[in-house]
Nucleic acid binder design. Structure first.
Length: 104
DNA sequence: TGCTTGACTTTAC
DNA sequence: AGTAAAGCCAAGC
């Protein structure tokens, strides 16, 4: 049981049509302050964990952080979110105050 | 074994 | 408002 497994568990709990920031996921996964690990963990393992909705995890700015080395799917993440009904601002930002996942 | 890099966050100017 | 620096942990070389 590594810390990463907790991250996947949290991400898997993000409901449809909602998003969460790296920092939030980190905190829920008992990894407060280690937001970087969340992003890194997803980058390393998400392709292997097809049951993890990694596209619902974004940065604190409400923007999508994509890596130039991602599988060519540059705007894939955005497309997936739009498919779930998430509205993007003209600048490509998401209204966190409205779509942010707020667990009880 | 040790340094560099990276899907980040927060505070400060 | 945009930019800068520090804190964090793991993987790659």
């Amino acid at each position: 049981m590594s810390s990463y497994d907790r991250i996947y568990a949290i991400v898997r709990q993000i409901p449809y049509g909602q998003v969460a920031t790296y920092g939030q996921v980190a905190e829920l996964a008992d990894l407060a302050g280690r937001a970087r690990l969340v992003g890194y963990a997803l980058f390393r393992v998400s392709p292997l964990q097809d049951d993890v909705p990694w596209h619902r995890v974004i940065n604190a700015k409400g923007e999508i952080s994509e890596s130039p080395f991602r599988n060519g799917g540059d705007y894939l993440q955005r497309s997936l979110l739009e498919s779930e009904g998430v509205q993007f601002s003209p600048t490509g930002k998401i209204s966190l105050s409205h779509y942010r996942w707020q667990p009880d």
